[in-house]
């Protein structure tokens, strides 16, 4: 389940008021989340949650659910 906080960081970075982001949502399904903008979203998440991802961990992500799980593991949840 995507946390409202993570969803908010993503939406803010993409300048979107609202978008239905679910576990299985992939980046290309979200308006503006293209391969170039991906860098900004990852940086925004790292800055907001004060975590640091490894490149290898980021390359494995298939959808937003995977991103949430990775973030949870970094936050010790």
């Amino acid at each position: 389940m995507i946390s409202p906080e993570l969803k908010q960081v993503i939406l803010k970075q993409l300048n979107l008021d609202d978008f239905d982001i679910k576990d299985e949502t992939t980046a290309p399904e979200v308006p503006g989340w293209d391969s170039l903008n991906h860098i900004n979203i990852i940086l925004a998440i790292e800055e907001h949650f004060k975590v640091k991802f490894k490149s290898y961990e980021l390359l494995r992500l298939k959808n937003v659910g995977d991103l949430q799980k990775l973030l949870d593991s970094k936050l010790g949840k």
């Binding site: 860098i39 900004n40 940086l43 490149s55 980021l58 390359l59």
Partner: peptide
């Protein structure tokens, strides 16, 4: 190729791309 490089240099933001 691009994604690993992009992630490696992500702190450079647009220049990483």
């Amino acid at each position: 190729l691009f994604r690993p490089l992009q992630m490696k240099y992500r702190n450079l933001r647009v220049y990483g791309n």
